[in-house]
């Protein structure tokens, strides 16, 4: 792959907990192969929150599931603490499963409705043989307290909780096995804003106190700007732009990132932003455009954009963009 931002070898930077290189995933469907994720590379540093943002069909959820091998990747590497998760045999993978956990958008569909909370959390503890008897009981109560619930909640079923409380149960279950990396897939998207704020605070407390590293998958650019240290912008399975969140938000360099930021509604009627309204729909992943996949909706597309897949070019410290016109467009962006 051509990537000027990162080397293709495993990084020797000790700060890096997870290094994803060339991750691709194709699904075979009745209508032909779909490239859900195509050649994605990024690093996750210890203690950081990396945001993966994108719209429907961007591949953000598939990418997250590939990292846990809940979906088997087609190619690429995911070096976690020196070991390539993608080349581990199933048996060896189990030990790593404890170190990487996932939180889902809809905790209701991911919590067994016929199990009490005690058993939902206990099952995770048992699977990895982490505690037994009284210690197990104490651990369950500790986890419930840690996520803002109370020990009495242990005997309840998921349907007895509100959406925010269920998400807390999902977080407690993920924490039960003392993971180092949590992949959170739209964890607050189904929650009302007042509840969302409570859960975002909880996520931050946990990140600070337990030293957690997190990949935060979201379509909500406002939440990502607030929460994340690094950001990866996906469109139709490809990375359009990535870099430190502050740099990407302050100076978005890809036309798609610019459009996303310009169209994300901001709760301030005085904000009069540059209106970049993209025409048309997101193309079908079954039949993606040639060259740059964004070109069919890009206001700056030229004939050359259909010819080659753009390589990522560095535009700032850790900040890269996959757009053949990024340099000339940068001049028009100064505002």
């Amino acid at each position: 792959m051509t990537d000027t931002t990162h080397t293709t070898q495993a990084p020797d930077d000790a700060d890096i907990l997870l290094s994803v290189r060339g991750l691709s995933k194709q699904f075979l469907t009745g209508s032909g192969p779909v490239k859900a994720v195509e050649d994605i590379s990024f690093d996750v540093r210890r203690g950081q929150i990396v945001g993966i943002v994108g719209e429907s069909g961007s591949g953000k959820t598939t990418a997250g599931r590939c990292l846990l091998r809940l979906v088997e990747p087609s190619s690429g590497k995911a070096i976690f603490d020196g070991v390539d998760l993608f080349s581990l045999p199933e048996k060896a993978l189990r030990a790593y499963r404890r170190r990487l956990q996932i939180i889902f958008q809809d905790p209701y569909s991911s919590l067994n409705p016929r199990m009490r909370v005690r058993d939902i959390i206990g099952e995770a503890i048992d699977t990895h043989g982490l505690a037994k008897g009284a210690a197990r009981q104490a651990r369950i109560e500790e986890l419930l307290t840690r996520v803002g619930l109370s020990p009495e909640h242990a005997s309840r079923y998921p349907n007895e909780f509100s959406g925010g409380q269920r998400q807390r149960v999902g977080i407690a279950r993920a924490l039960a096995v003392e993971p180092e990396l949590i992949i959170a897939d739209e964890p607050v998207s189904a929650l009302d804003v007042s509840v969302q704020a409570q859960v975002l605070n909880l996520i931050q407390e946990l990140q600070r106190e337990l030293g957690l590293t997190m990949i935060f998958i979201s379509h909500d650019l406002t939440v990502v700007e607030y929460l994340c240290d690094e950001i990866v912008v996906l469109y139709l399975g490809r990375i359009m732009e990535q870099g430190p969140a502050r740099s990407v938000y302050a100076k978005p360099r890809h036309p798609y990132t610019r459009a996303l930021l310009a169209t994300a509604p901001v709760p301030d009627p005085n904000v009069r932003r540059e209106r970049v309204i993209l025409q048309g729909d997101i193309p079908s992943p079954l039949d993606p455009p040639s060259g740059c996949v964004f070109r069919t909706r890009c206001p700056h597309a030229i004939a050359a954009c259909a010819e080659t897949v753009p390589t990522r070019e560095t535009v700032g410290p850790g900040h890269s963009v996959a757009c053949i016109r990024q340099a000339e467009l940068a001049e028009t962006y100064q505002d």
């Binding site: 719209e55 993209l278 997101i282």
Partner: peptide
């Protein structure tokens, strides 16, 4: 709807 489509509909 996705944000870029939402913007079209609001417009």
């Amino acid at each position: 709807l996705d944000v870029t489509i939402q913007a079209q509909i609001l417009d």
